[in-house]
Design a protein around this nucleic acid. Structure first.
Lengths: 261, 261
DNA sequence: AAGTGGTCTAGACCACTTT
DNA sequence: AAGTGGTCTAGACCACTTC
């Protein structure tokens, strides 16, 4: 009946994820499909951390959808910290080489003074076979190759954190103590630049423990000093676990900061 | 030049927050103004926790803006957990009387098994004058009346949490031990229903400490057992602090769970 | 001036819930 | 059938950045 030329939303299926059209029983909103396509380009490295991604208009043309649909997709990616929007300039792929990204994962704050990044001293870096518990958390098979890292971090020369890390050997092949020591800044920045693996999310379990003899020596504290113990599993795109990190935090001049929303 | 009748976005100032129009040097997007108006209605109790708020169409008519603008305002309120959308039914004011709300603030999870809410045993409830540190965190004057609460919480009969709370006496006038004891469920639910004060956000500082004699007795553990110590300040609308809570958590069969995004 | 993201509108249709 | 939120489009204009 309508004589107006408008014929919106014929859902041209222009942006399907490349599967066989029609046989898939699962449907999702267009903007979710667009979001998935953009995420794929991020994951594949088509657009690298720190780089500009195509403008909303260009993506809308490419995917044959309206700018508003692309916008909604990017809105969600921005909310998940995968990209950052800058008015007048464009949308950039998030990177760990930024002050603002550092404190998303470093939650230990000084009781007084401004937060800053600690210095690292590496105690041990070696290849080994994954123990059962590590393999389970990293979604590997027991005995698979992993890289083990142990380090102490200090704030203003005061040893405060002892950390042990396990990384999948396949993903981080070639990681050496020298490379770690010469790199300044968060490890996640190195992982992103050198190994193309970007941490985007993590879960953490925290408890209180007493310092053992070894850890007490490293932190220069007395045995049985109470410490925060954190077990963190980090994930990259596709919810793939790529790091297990167990840390002990001295909380005499620092605290773990959290926001409950 | 355009002959089309469309004259959108003349920004009719229909939805200004009631201030003197024109003299204010600060401008904000329309949807932010709408969001502020809706928040005011939430804060004033015009729409109470659990209730349905007016539909998007009705709010759009009321504020003389498009439905899309109201939608964007509500989108943000939903992201902040102030309201909950339910397709086909409407938008509801969030409430602490819900299973899904409980675990936003209770982060202590069992190492094994499904999370559930602990039972409370109240040790002490009294009115007192705010010590300096409490007053500072609650934005009161030192010596102002506060209500002090101390309780022990148990999971399956195992004492696990010792908590001390300080509440502004003015806001929580009439809070008694009896009322607390007969109430089942999270305190935030009681605060919301009985005192019209809804917690919407909190910040937390966490450290590791050793159990002292008193706390060890309450938790039935030995002195010097390591415990998680949490200091939480909770806020209601307008970033007003309304609770200080200091908790000690036994983390032998539980852990503090956190998601880093 | 041109390009980018940010806001706002108007209208269509869809999915879900209730009557 | 009517009402709600959810998706999608098309187009206008604004604010900011760069050329």
């Amino acid at each position: 009946m309508s004589s107006t030329p408008s014929n919106p939303n014929n859902n041209p299926a222009a942006a399907n994820a490349g599967g066989a059209g029609g046989s898939s029983p699962t449907f999702s909103p267009l903007y979710q499909q667009i979001k998935a396509l953009i995420t794929q380009s991020l994951q594949s490295g088509e657009w690298k951390p720190g780089e500009l991604i195509p403008s909303e208009v260009e993506l809308a043309n490419r995917f044959k959808v309206s700018q508003g649909t692309v916008r909604k997709a990017i809105d969600e990616l921005a909310a998940e910290n995968l990209v950052m929007r800058k008015q007048g300039k464009g949308t950039f792929v998030s990177t760990h080489h930024e002050a603002r990204a550092h404190f998303r994962f470093l939650r230990l704050m000084p009781d007084e003074g401004v937060p800053h990044y600690p210095e690292s001293k590496f105690i041990e870096v070696k290849r080994m076979r994954a123990p059962a518990d590590v393999a389970r958390l990293l979604d590997l098979k027991s005995g698979d190759a992993v890289i083990f890292v142990k380090r102490v971090q200090s704030f203003d020369g005061v040893p405060t954190i002892v950390e042990e890390l396990w990384l999948p050997g396949l993903t981080f092949k070639g990681l050496t103590a020298e490379r770690l020591e010469e790199y300044k800044g968060p490890m996640y920045g190195l992982f992103e630049s050198e190994f193309g693996t970007r941490m985007i999310r993590a879960t953490e379990k925290i408890r209180a423990v007493c310092a053992g003899a070894d850890d007490a020596a490293l932190l220069k504290i007395t045995v049985n000093t109470p410490l925060l113990a954190s077990e963190r599993v980090s994930f990259t795109y596709g919810d793939k676990a790529v790091e297990l990190r167990r840390g002990l935090y001295l909380t005499e001049r620092h605290h773990y900061h959290n926001e409950l929303n």
